[in-house]
Design a protein around this nucleic acid. Structure first.
Lengths: 348, 348
DNA sequence: TTGTAGGCGTTATCAA
DNA sequence: TTGATAACGCCTACAA
């Protein structure tokens, strides 16, 4: 009983004694109809329970309003947060999102891109990092990447350099004797590398004693713990009695670091200060709320869609993008919580 | 230069001197062509750089292979984890996912559903909880819900009742003197309610002293903290000197609870045992890895898609679903970590 | 094994 | 302000 054929413009047209064209106009250009006729059609639509078929519309006008998204995964807070924001832009921009998770397998991700292209996406948002931007640039679609290597394509990134500076500044303001930055080995081509540079250069230009510790982090929780345990032991002895300001590469690591301190010392030792990066859930849910350099995911998402939209419009008007790729930069925001303490501001 | 019209079957047909039909067959029924001709076409496709257009195919054969997903949000670990798994099923099932985040606004979510319908999704996966299953059942698409009210539609849920029992059993095995369950007020119609029942009935049938504490949790992190602080104060005095086995409604709350204990007592007190629910990241990233009742998100996701697929096949063959909705149940898995300790098993 | 012709449900282009 | 007609790119009988 249910499976009666869906109602089409044709049905509405016959029912109202208009033509299909007029029905179409009712949706796309209502002002061109008399209010009278608008009502007639509106009622017919209800009476026949018409449901739009956007697939047919796509075929006819070529506009899918689809945007493809290529994520590495959704386990990391940062990715799910930003996906959340991106999907939220539907309200403002109206794009529908086809989402794929590539798990960092390049061959798989290339297949996904082909599939997305087959559905005539109008733009592609790439957060996964396996496919070089050089390849992405050759796709026949506007591409915007977020926080990844972006030499050949448009992108939106956090100002990681500034973030590194902010972290160093935060720690410096806490009267730390020495500033430490712990990170994993990373390529200068990826935005996150800027955190290291920002940190180092801030320290240098302000004459602050500092050390950058590079370890193969982010492999597994277990390994990370072991590595950080060693780091803590090292810091405890190497900088004994000195106030250590530690800037961890991200909140997850900062949280692990904090937990290890708690387990070793039973508390957050007075000679430590800690700053993370991202403002992910972990940072506010940890034993002690962790001070962090927050990425403004809402702005990143909005900027990405806007940038994509610009490109989509350009690529329709003109032939190909002539000028180089645009790289948009969003400043991070330092959030002081309970793992850093600024000296009381002077009053009066 | 770039914007030359895309190559179509027609172009390939002319180029190879076949008909469009043959080209179509090359994709959908290749065995019906001679290997010879297959090669010819294959080469033509490459030479002309053909790219599939699945939109046209949809219009022609009616199969979008789209599945719509309605999420409440992606902030909670559970949701992003499960979305991750759902998207991962593409490899096995081939469905493409159009994802919307409703933020629990019913009117908004209804709009999203209409939009999804307009794109002729073949099935709908609902994790958000604002729209009653009665409404969902009236949509013209197969629907499967996950962990929410599901009276009128097919669903996949964790066996929450069993989970509640497992939690109680875990705590009982730790020689707790009294078992506590902390939860927010919830309706018996939602799956999560089963946790309470499972816990209570296990305690009753085993003659275990217990108490269920219902508080308006999950409003904001700040409020939750305050409420849990009060709960701890209450427990500390009401059950002083007794070993308290606490089963929290979920890992986030368990984590907050653990953090508060740490802040109050400087450690995880010996007279406490703690079990969470979900096996979300928080539970393993907390100061002390939290024992928890783990939801098997991979199985839930797979079951959901399978169930959806079954319905989609049925709804094509027959008219409408005659028998009642199917409710699939996935057992949770207790994970013993560092907030519970079983007595050493006897050796030899 | 291959081809012909019609259809899927819209929009676009003319014309009236 | 409205209509007729031809796309859009593919699939599917049916025919050969």
């Amino acid at each position: 009983m249910k499976k009666s054929k869906p109602v089409t413009f044709d049905d509405i047209a016959k029912y109202t004694h208009f033509s299909k064209t007029t029905i179409s106009r009712y949706f796309n250009n209502p002002e061109s109809l008399t209010p009278q006729n608008q009502k007639i059609i509106a009622e017919a639509l209800k009476k026949l329970d018409y449901r739009a078929n956007k697939v047919a519309r796509i075929l006819a006008n070529g506009k899918t309003e689809f945007i493809g998204i290529l994520m590495p995964d959704l386990y990391h807070h940062f990715f799910s947060r930003i996906l959340n924001e991106i999907l939220g832009t539907y309200e403002e921009f109206g794009y529908k999102f086809l989402v794929f998770v590539g798990n960092s397998k390049e061959e798989v991700e290339r297949r996904y891109i082909q599939e997305l292209l087959a559905y005539r996406i109008e733009g592609l948002l790439v957060l996964s990092h396996t496919i070089p931007s050089e390849s992405l640039a050759q796709l026949q679609v506007p591409v915007v990447t977020i926080e990844r290597e972006d030499a050949q394509v448009c992108s939106v990134n956090t100002d990681n350099y500034l973030g590194g500076q902010q972290a160093a500044a935060l720690l410096a303001d806490c009267q730390c004797d020495v500033l430490i930055h712990v990170n994993s080995p990373s390529d200068p081509s990826i935005p996150a590398y800027g955190r290291i540079r920002g940190f180092e250069e801030y320290c240098q230009s302000h004459g602050l004693p500092h050390e950058v510790i590079i370890r193969q982090l982010d492999s597994s929780q277990h390994c990370d713990q072991q590595l950080l345990r060693e780091v803590i032991d090292y810091l405890d002895t190497a900088y004994q009695g000195r106030k250590k300001g530690v800037f961890m590469a991200n909140d997850t690591l900062a949280n692990t670091f904090l937990n290890l301190l708690f387990r070793k010392h039973g508390c957050f030792p007075a000679d430590y200060q800690l700053v993370g990066f991202d403002n992910s859930l972990t940072s506010s849910e940890s034993v002690l709320p962790i001070s962090t350099i927050g990425q403004q995911v809402d702005q990143i998402a909005a900027a990405a869609i806007t940038l994509l939209q610009q490109q989509m419009q350009e690529s329709k008007k003109k032939k190909g993008a002539t000028q180089g790729p645009i790289h948009q930069i969003i400043p991070p925001v330092p959030l002081e919580r309970q793992t850093t303490c600024r000296p009381e501001p002077k009053k009066g």
